[in-house]
Write a protein that binds this DNA or RNA. Structure first.
Lengths: 187, 187
DNA sequence: GATTTATGAATGAATG
DNA sequence: CATTCATTCATAAATC
């Protein structure tokens, strides 16, 4: 599922030949509409339904898919935010204290708590991932990785067999049958 | 998604240098294992214990933490789900008011009436990647794009396009302030 | 025609 | 689990 068939988008007379383009490019009408939504209406958080609506509508102006609309909004938002961040520091050396009263407290509180070091409380529904005080675990022979002599990659498990399983854990004996998923390093 | 023309994950054990790369990127072996688990074995809901197991095993193929495994599964699940959901028809009957500069409903900044959408909200990105050769829909009056009868967009699609046209007819009249942004076509 | 820029696309990470 | 943010890769288009 790479960049599938998003071909044949034509812009206002500057289209490419068929077969050479794979990346969607908004046609002028599409761009106009999208920008209108974003800037004029301040419409920046379209729900999936709205995305589909928009996409459906934009289809008459050229090939387009939902994900194009989605990405368009995402990228625009991200890049606007990015630009703002870059300007946070006034590059001028002049002492410009612009205290115009407006307590522009940008409440962009993204309480970043990067405390993901060891254990995380990913469990959202409270069913998984408990806080274990000790990171003590004796998984040597993992049930997930059956030691048939080779693991998923075909590498030999040189580790000790024996299986000191832990009680309570789902003992899923998944054996990966090493299916290449087309995942290779194509440099 | 199996996009292969992207990252150049380099090594298999020397990733994430200090300070330069803070974001984990799966090494090819790691990816292969993870995909094998997910797709091959249908293993999509790892418990915390299993996450640790997986992580432990993946460690021999590069730096990795539990949270990486966790996020990987979460993201893949979420995005796969999105894809499926996006195929469904849009049930919206809601009216996303999209009047740029017309119908002065400019009371609030975000005067979009996105209250209709309960909370359905499913993904909107990877829409349809599969074979969808020729489906094109006959849009008419979308609630999102109220037609006022005038075609301000004036897409000169009938002009010297010289290619396969946009296909759709311009029956939607979306009144945009065309001069708002100056660049509708930066091509 | 190689370099830079703009932007579509992908995905890891995070939040609620 | 759904949604959003941040960062990065990839590439068409513009620039030199």
């Amino acid at each position: 599922m790479e960049q599938q068939t998003q071909q044949q988008i034509e812009d206002g007379g500057n289209n490419q030949a068929a077969g050479t383009n794979n990346r969607w490019a908004p046609t002028p009408p599409q761009l106009r509409i999208l920008k209108g939504l974003y800037y004029d209406k301040g419409f920046k958080y379209p729900t999936p339904e709205q995305i589909q609506e928009i996409c459906l509508h934009l289809k008459q102006y050229g090939q387009i898919e939902d994900k194009n609309v989605f990405f368009w909004f995402q990228n625009l938002k991200a890049r606007e935010r990015q630009k703002l961040k870059e300007f946070r520091n006034v590059p001028v050396g002049g002492s410009l204290d612009l205290n115009f009263g407006s307590t522009s407290s940008t409440s962009t509180d993204r309480s970043i708590d990067l405390n993901f070091g060891s254990r995380v409380g990913y469990g959202a529904d409270g069913s998984i991932m408990e806080q274990r005080g000790e990171y003590h675990q004796e998984i040597e022979t993992l049930p997930l990785f059956p030691m048939h002599g080779e693991d998923i990659l075909g590498n030999m498990k040189t580790t000790s067999e024996g299986g000191s399983g832990y009680g309570g854990g789902s003992r899923i004996s998944l054996e990966l049958s090493l299916n290449s998923y087309g995942d290779a390093d194509m440099a």
